[in-house]
Design a protein around this nucleic acid. Sequence first.
RNA 1: GCCGGAGUGGCGGAAUGGCAGACGCACGGGACUCAAAAUCCCGCGGCCCUUGGGGCCGUGAGGGUUCGACCCCCUCCUCCGGCACCA
Length: 825
Amino acid sequence: MIDFHQRVETKWQERWEREGTFRAPDLPEGPRFYCLEMLPYPSGRIHMGHVRNYSIGDVVARFRRRRGFTVMHPIGWDALGLPAENAALERGAHPADWTNRNIEHMRRQLRRLGFSYDWDREFATCDPAYYRWNQWFFLKMRERGLAYRKNGPVNWCPRCETVLANEQVEAGHCWRCEAVVISRDLPQWFLRITDYADELLEAMEEMPGWPHKVLLLQRNWIGRSEGAEIRFSIPELGGDGEVPVFTTRVDTIYGATALVLAPEHPAARALADRAPEVAEFIAVAMSKRAAAAHPGGEETGKTGVDTGFRAVNPFSGEEIPVFVGDYVLMEYGTGAVMAVPAHDERDYEFAKKYGIPIRPVVIPNDPEAPRAEDGAFFEYGTVVDSGSFSGLPTEEAKTAMAEHARAGGYGGPKIAWRFRDWGISRQRYWGTPIPMIHCRDCGEVPVPEKDLPVELPRDVEITGMGGSALSKIDSWNRVDCPVCGAGARRETDTMDTFVDSSWYFYRYLDPRNDQAPFDAEKARAWFPIDLYIGGVEHAILHLIYCRFWTRVMRDLGLVANDEPVVRQLSQGMVIKDGAKMSKSKGNVVDPDAVVERHGADAIRLYVLFESPPEKEMDWTDARLAGPARYLGRLDRRIPGDAEWLAGTSLPTGEEIFEPSDLALRRKTHQTIRRVTRDLEQRLHPNTAIAAIMELTSAVSQRLPEAASDGSRRAVREAVEAVVSLLNPMAPHLTEELWERLGGERMLVHSPWPEYDEEIARDEQVLVVLQVNGKLRGRLEAPAGLEGGALVALARANPGIRRHLEGLTVRRVVTVPDRLVNFVAS
RNA sequence: GCCGGAGUGGCGGAAUGGCAGACGCACGGGACUCAAAAUCCCGCGGCCCUUGGGGCCGUGAGGGUUCGACCCCCUCCUCCGGCACCA
């Protein structure tokens, strides 16, 4: 048996490869389907998450091909990234060699699982032929002002004197030397993704093919917030002395009893020059912030300092104290807030601590609503004690007051975003070099397009200490300035690997193009992607970045579509014993071992059958037995009858059928309908497989050769349907059985079975009989029976008669072909 | 804290207003076998009644809408995920 599945699976894999069965044309004719799964990081071995992800994608790709679509189903490698450098550190392997070895191994693993990829389109993102286009895009973005350099915080290990990735910071300490990690500002490159915030958010209204959950996560991440900007003035500051604040509750402005600045705020620094205690507070706050900048940093309680200066509320003319407070974030809004303790929880906490007055200016509409003794109340209500605005409900007051500020020239409506620009600089070796040159005289100079790609030097020493490895390679680092020719230095930062994965799916269409990232005509022909499958963990970053990148490409005239993906499926994690599989927990199941023992079809069928794709799936060895047994059963039974089955044709409808033949045919056509819908619309292979198993049981009982021609043909039809429908899930065994059943072409080239509504229709239906909604009987009735005839039959039912005894029927609810419910008392 | 999602037999799940538990695992019984494995057949939510058969309860808890609720609405509990001083 073990030998058998290995022989069969190898046989078909070799044939598919020899014949180029899954090769996709550059330009499709007729209906096309782009089926994509997230490309793997070549970490060393395929894991169960991959098996699940790629099995689901493969079912769809194979199903669509047989439905007559020209299918694009590619695969590649997300090959740049930190683990390769760690391998270099740990075992001295060069990142490139380590990566390539892993790719080779994992490619073999994927082939063994029988996925229907067009391997001719495979590429790895670490190939300079690919990442040169990352560089090209970067230059294009810079030309358009979409890439810029500014200071940004990084995790810094003072002992190793190097930047750490977030994953290298463990509970606030360096993963290698355990020194306390601090936050440090370095000049870094950013992409202006916030320019697209509005567009990215709005487009989500029209993305019905994306999971609700993913859209929500992205909406929260973008964090659009409508409010107002109001300029307070600090007369003693001199100049215009104005400090804008952002608020979503302008309606509470008459209750503002302080102005609070972020420690990094320029006005705070200006005040610090004149007040030493402010300077001291800022220094302390900044160092605390640095320590808390990483995961695991402790939450600090709100602290602040009264600067002694006063600000003027432009609405009331009132003077209020100016504080510097560490609960105000420089990155959000304007970096300054008006503190309204009576109507904001954070301000309330801060005010309690520093004795700032609490002045209610909004009262609840419901007098019973709970409210603190001092009037603190954080919901919407009615504005009071607020000049001419008193008496307005919150909503109206917000609009009126924002307008008032605009008319008065000290503010107006404003939208704030939580979304930040995308920092892409990484102080690492194994990434795409950022194609910039720093010249003493000319400043930032882009590498001329003709000099792309800027290739990573092969000779590198990775120590993990003393700054980025690239910065230490002088021969690579020193260049002549492309503008003035003087000696200059290369940018030594490399790009975030999320850049690589933001557009790779376009490259599959044209993987060897050396004139452009891809041919625009091919992109027009294949895009958008019809289905994109990957783990939920990419719901935010990757799936926003790639939407952004597509829009940039659109603006560059490269693509015609706004969105890259029509339908997205976020598949659940594979866990074991209730926890994510990991080496440290010792609960890793190696797919290779399972394939070795049970075959690729069995592992595929198991992961598909175990639970619906979007749900988490708990791997249980014992449960593999079910699907594996099922395949064994098919494999044992069908060949025994293959000879006569192969010699029997499908029914034409002219034959004489026994009732049992008609029942079997009905089941067959119902199953085709069910499986087609499950795979096409619901993307639920689990229920599709269950339906095929049912049909298998039904036909098994009929398998020994029957006497009548009608019976034989009905059986032939059912067996053929089982094999044909199961094919996307278990492609090897079904191909083998198909051949034995006398299939002329390979199953992958045979059309998906069609069902006939007439044949699928039930003639007899089971009607449920209820009294007062309780099940009291069942009735086999001819389909389509309704009204009086149905009720009469129902009344005759013994169970119904018994339960209606002594009761008066008030009403009868009938649903034809489903139920009759007597409402009686 | 805020925003989501999910709670169904011993287990994975099915049914998304109309027979709750399809399909599968595990388990029990039987057949085959000297025996075991494999395979095949039957049974399998709980409680109760004297059987055929029937009754009652049952989809996290409580309430509501409906002729009828796992499904829709409200309140609560538990678990999981995301964000986390976002003004």
